[in-house]
Write a protein that binds this DNA or RNA. Sequence first.
DNA 1: ATTTTTGTGTTAGAAAACATAACATTGATT
DNA 2: AATCAATGTTATGTTTTCTAACACAAAAAT
Lengths: 134, 134
Amino acid sequence: MKWVKLMTNRVRRTMPLLPISIVMQLTELTARQIRYYEEHGLVSPARTEGNKRMFSLNDVDTLLEIKDYLDQGLNMAGIKKIYDLRETPANEKAEPKNLSDAELRRLLHEELKHQARPFEKGGFRQSDLSRFFN
Amino acid sequence: MKWVKLMTNRVRRTMPLLPISIVMQLTELTARQIRYYEEHGLVSPARTEGNKRMFSLNDVDTLLEIKDYLDQGLNMAGIKKIYDLRETPANEKAEPKNLSDAELRRLLHEELKHQARPFEKGGFRQSDLSRFFN
DNA sequence: ATTTTTGTGTTAGAAAACATAACATTGATT
DNA sequence: AATCAATGTTATGTTTTCTAACACAAAAAT
């Protein structure tokens, strides 16, 4: 079952869940800025069928970093270079990627359902999606 | 620092981040169903300035639970009752809830920042859940 | 000291997503 | 047969997001 863990970890951070409006709030960037950074390949949000950008938590992470770098005086080229260097294609392991939608949903659902609640035991008020933020 | 952790946990789970379309995919419920459950007070998503529903991770959890209960044959009344009973106003402790947006953002930022570096995000434009896993 | 480039603002017009509200349908309860 | 509960469907209006274009100030290059 290790692969499940890995997959869900990956899924957690890469799931495109957030519309640009939320990302704007989370990052304090304007839509213009976010799109501009995308234009330069620094983020690659998914798209809905209707072509709307949907961002993952990783994307938010990246955008916050970009913001930091800009604050530190770097320009696009510098930031690009940093990310290029960071890319270690060596340690990119191929992951099992041939699950049906239904299966993936079921896995997600399972995880959501049986989350150990830290404190209470009887009252599992919520199964906790917050792992998505880890 | 413990309370920070707790607090951020709470914040993370209650932050209204997700539009209804994403919640639909996550829960496999229709918009109609989700709105109907809201009508019955089972979830209370936040609203944007423009009146669009924004759901928290807790909301998703709740919706998944509702789905389970319905599958188990409960009806609205039953589910309502369950949530009513679950509400133990005794253990509702007042939580420190007076952080500025900037502070919250910084906390979130910190958490996101010191994470293991993710994967590549290639551009993709697919429908269904499969676009979550690339 | 000009000229060019960069990063961002602003605007316009179109399309997508979402809202409410009403009516329809289906299966269970009375 | 009539009612009710949960959901589907449709109509219509508003909000959000999109792309593309032009504007502009500050930095960089010439």
